[in-house]
Amino acid sequence: MVSSPKNFLFLFLGLAGLTLATSGIALINLGGMNFPIAILIACLQASIIIYYYMHIQSAEILVKIFAVGTLLWLSILILLTFNDYFSRYWTTNPSLWP
């Protein structure tokens, strides 16, 4: 797909632009929105790297399965641990129930 130096230059400019944007936004107080916006931009940058720089779309299906599996396992690690942290004080403090 993307295999010309010019395209990669544009991708770099895009990534750099997103970086400047996310740094700039971090300096503005958007309240609760700062967190999701920063994460979203990071995910966008990550997608660009994985799709174009790491050529995942031209890799075989097995590689794609491993990439998805990795994300899944990471979420198991984080979510199942947070399962404990979110609910730790539920017995002593029922007001914390969702």
């Binding site: 396992w73 198991i76 199942l80 399962n83 404990d84 942290y85 979110f86 609910s87 730790r88 539920w90 017995t91």
Partner: peptide, 18 residues
């Protein structure tokens, strides 16, 4: 096997719901 590790921690102070 990746989903069960907390069974080593039932008495550790982990949340009982976990």
């Amino acid at each position: 096997g990746f989903l069960v590790w907390g069974h080593h921690m039932f008495v550790s102070g982990q949340s009982v719901y976990a």
